[in-house]
Design a protein around this nucleic acid. Structure first.
Lengths: 154, 154
DNA sequence: TATTGTTATACTCTATAACTATA
DNA sequence: TATAGTTATAGAGTATAACAATA
């Protein structure tokens, strides 16, 4: 049963992270994991996921954008756009329209899409407050700036 | 062919992000993506992936740790540990040893595992320098601190 | 009963290559 | 030939549930 010598391990809580301790690299991973889980949970009741929200946001902010430029803005290859657009079109939130160059498409949100995004913005704001709850407003703003610097240098 | 009116889109580069602009949430996603791709590329020549490195680091820093506590430290469920441990054991970098409570296992790195980690630390340091190249040392240190605050509140 | 480790399963994200239609 | 969009495929990461062994 229970004994005091039960644990022969030579470690104690909390668990140590070795060379990962206090690195930007592992901090990014841990913070990202916490963020994405909170966002997934916040969007699920609306039938949304983080990538769907990003795609809709970008289309609303850039009416007429082509799928390949959307994919580029989201940081991945062209082929990732198709299933996201299929889903958003299925939900009647956006439409793929033909342009003058018939190889290319122009993406536009429907009124329902714009309305949905407005609704999601409230969820997004609450999510942002949750993940920055341990930070002052100045720290949160600084964090966003530093993250953007890291992201841009790629 | 080429015409000046070719683009009827009412957007211009760079692409706008709408409500995602300047949020910690989307900044985290973008910075994480940049980081993880750099780390994957850095580790690939050694046959390693970021989760394998994290697992090995934590086992070396916590000799005798159990798989379930390793999984907890890495932020996911128990079942994720098994394939990572299979792989590391296959590589002869760690061993699963039986403890007093025979339900539980004690994980320990082999000498080869410790040597491998030492080698990986150099790659990790170079990786850390690359992803923080746009930041002063003070900013990088501050960023790591802020990220840890975000991660911990979960 | 509860806990540990494992297996099975499924879903998402991501990357690559190949196909089509247009230019 | 080059580009845009799509499809097919595969691999990795993650989550849940169920199982066997042990307590």
């Amino acid at each position: 049963m229970h004994e005091n010598v039960q644990q022969l391990n030579d470690y104690d809580a909390p668990t140590a992270f070795g060379p990962l301790t206090a690195t930007v690299s592992y901090g990014l991973k841990r913070a990202y994991l916490r963020m994405i889980r909170d966002l997934e949970a916040a969007l699920a009741p609306e039938g949304f996921t983080p990538p769907l929200l990003a795609a809709l946001s970008i289309v609303v902010a850039n009416p007429g954008i082509a799928p390949s430029r959307l994919a580029e803005a989201m940081g991945h290859g062209r082929s990732r756009a198709a299933p996201l657009l299929d889903r958003l079109e299925e939900m009647r939130l956006l439409a793929r329209e033909a342009g003058a160059d018939r190889r290319s498409l122009q993406l536009r949100a429907t009124p329902a899409g714009a309305a949905m995004l407005a609704r999601l913005e409230a969820l997004l704001a609450a999510h942002e407050r949750r993940i920055t709850e341990g930070l002052s407003p100045e720290e949160a703003s600084l964090l966003a700036t530093l993250l953007e610097k890291v992201a841009r240098e790629g």
